[in-house]
Nucleic acid binder design. Structure first.
Length: 558
DNA sequence: GGAAGGACTTGCGAGCACTCTT
DNA sequence: AAGAGTGCTCGCAAGTCCTTCC
């Protein structure tokens, strides 16, 4: 591997303001999605029952739709309309004259072609598969790494996104629109001046090559659906990302020091004469207590209708003066990030309840609950309370502190490793529930639960038998006792497994583990209770959290 | 001061790869 | 050896929050 530029950095970019500021960045540029291969002649598209040869560009877009035929997306009207509208834009004028209705388009042959092709690929002999893997590894090796200030670092996403049909989440108004192919002419390269500038594919040029050491991306382009910029950045295992991660948790730890003061302050503000302050203090209470997201405004009609705290509308909450024997209950029901439903019934303190009644007076269901508040206002206030404080820090703080407290409460030093891990998972789960990290119940859940139960029943029987035998055979006592003990232990372990699985049915632990829980808490816990770190972090996670594994000893306190 | 643009983190699900069972 | 089940990686959408521009 070339190590050019490590010793000679005299030519490197200089920028003096704060920020990332690397001295050397060298890479190969993005790896481009493979070009379109036209369909064989015998795979036909039919319009109105008659075969029709499409122009290559038109055909390519048709294949995007054909590939998705058995996906639910293609049954949705918005998806169909958006696709058809964009498809027609790319047709030749003759094609456009002919193809006027999507219902008359028959993609079935094309669809079958791709299904078959996919199966053929899966059925490939081992050696062929091995060869394909080696080719992929070669590409990874060549394009998947960069050199940043003398260190070889893994890149997160070194490939451009392939063209296709946009799939939004939830009720997205743009679903089905055509995502265009990214060409070198769309791509901005960022690298140091002294480094070897990456070569664009032959016959092509980059949109721009720049040297901006205040940012961390290697390449970028603007996508055509939302007109937003996409970036090629480093892998979480990189030093740069690790340092940022560490910083994030340090900010959250600083919040720990002032959170009591902030809480008494927002409680006081519930009685403020200013409406703006009251709204701010109630919103902050939600963000703190319920770990809600900030809730930026969104452009209407451009994205799915989802909300966070500051963008909650009257229709998203119901007030119950009394519910199930509890007073002042707020019932939340709204779609949050990724159109995941947030549903929760929460007893709140009386002033909060009274304030909410006030905020909702004379408003329609579609009106903003906090009409005098937005995330900019809220974050400005938070910044005054603590340097670096923003709404999202509360999520990080409350997630991490909850893990630490739960681990303390649930872990029994006398337990075996399996039981300790159940405790760990339960603590992790408490956080995931707080942050509303959900998942669809896995498809094989019922079945695999039954299998596990069958195993447990079998083990119980074995245990019973061993007990009987022990009674019968007084001789050979030691061996029988041991086998009894072993069976008992296995049963316990299976029961633990089953409990864990059941409790985890609809909860996703990954997001909190990766993004909200200070890894030093987990590392310290492992060290303190003699649990190998591999039991809670897999290889990738250990790479991402290398900084924490290095740093934390068993008495680390968040 | 507010809209638009930009950079970066967070989030879920699909599909692949690996393991375990039969 | 094959098939099922599970864990892990990757893709890329969708957030947050800061900066820039008028």
């Amino acid at each position: 591997m070339k190590q050019q530029g490590i010793d000679d950095l005299s030519n490197a970019c200089e920028k003096t303001d704060d920020g990332v500021k690397w001295k050397q960045l060298e890479h190969k540029g993005p790896y481009f999605a493979p070009l379109y291969e036209p369909l064989p002649d015998d795979v036909k598209f039919y319009y109105d029952g008659k075969p029709m040869k499409l122009n290559v560009a038109t055909e390519e877009i048709a294949t995007f739709y054909a590939k998705m035929l058995d996906h639910e997306y293609t049954t949705k009207e918005i998806f169909q309309n958006n696709f058809f509208y964009d498809w027609r834009k790319e047709m030749t004028s003759e094609e456009r004259k002919k193809i006027k209705h999507l219902e008359k388009c028959d993609f079935k042959e094309m669809h079958k072609y791709f299904v078959d092709k996919n199966e053929a690929r899966k059925a490939l002999p081992k050696e062929e598969k091995q060869k394909l893997k080696e080719e992929a590894d070669k590409i990874q090796e060549e394009y998947g790494y960069c050199i940043l200030d003398g260190h070889r670092e893994k890149i997160g996403n070194f490939k451009t996104e392939p063209p296709g049909l946009f799939r939004g989440r939830g009720d997205h108004p743009k679903m089905g629109m055509l995502k265009k192919r990214i060409m070198p002419e769309d791509v901005i390269i960022n690298c140091s001046k002294d480094s070897q500038t990456p070569e664009p594919p032959s016959g092509h040029k980059w949109k721009e090559v720049r040297c901006d050491n205040t940012v961390t991306w290697l390449a970028s382009w603007t996508e055509n659906i939302q007109n937003s910029i996409k970036y090629i950045m480093l892998n979480p295992s990189s030093k740069l990302k690790g340092e940022k991660d560490w910083q994030k948790y340090e900010v959250a730890r600083r919040l720990k020091g002032v959170v009591n003061k902030i809480r008494s302050q927002y409680r006081a503000d519930w009685k403020s004469r200013e409406m703006k302050k009251r709204q701010r203090s109630v919103a902050l209470y939600f963000i703190d207590k319920l770990a809600l997201r900030a809730g930026n405004e969104k452009e209407e009609g451009e994205t799915a209708d989802t909300v966070g705290c500051c963008s909650l509308r009257v229709e998203h909450i119901k007030l119950h003066p009394e519910l199930d024997g509890q007073e002042h209950v707020v019932e939340f029901d709204f779609l949050g990030k990724d159109s995941i439903r947030y549903y929760n019934k929460v007893p709140v303190e009386k002033p909060v309840f009274k304030n909410l009644q006030l905020f909702m007076e004379n408003k329609d269901p579609g009106d903003d609950l906090f009409d005098r508040l937005n995330t900019t206002v809220l974050n400005k206030h938070l910044q005054d309370l603590m340097d670096g404080l923003t709404a999202k820090v509360f999520r990080t703080y409350n997630a991490s502190i909850t893990l630490q407290e739960q681990l303390k409460a649930l872990t029994d030093a006398e337990d075996n490793v399996a039981a300790k891990l159940l405790s760990y998972n339960r603590a992790n789960r408490a956080v995931a529930i707080l942050c509303n990290h959900q998942r669809a119940t896995p498809k094989s859940f019922e079945k695999s639960m039954q299998n596990l139960q069958a195993k447990i029943d079998a083990k119980k029987e074995q245990l019973g038998e061993a007990q009987m035998e022990l009674k019968r055979a007084k001789a050979d006592l030691k061996a029988k006792k041991d086998s009894l003990l072993a069976e008992g232990k296995q049963l316990l372990k299976l029961n633990v497994q089953a409990t864990d699985k059941e409790e985890n049915k609809q909860i996703a632990l990954g997001t909190s583990k990766l993004n909200y829980l200070d890894p030093r808490i987990s590392v310290a816990w492992c060290k303190k209770f003699g649990v190998p770190i591999e039991k809670i972090y897999n290889k990738t996670q250990r790479e991402k959290f290398a900084w924490a594994i290095d740093m934390a000893d068993e008495d680390f306190e968040f």
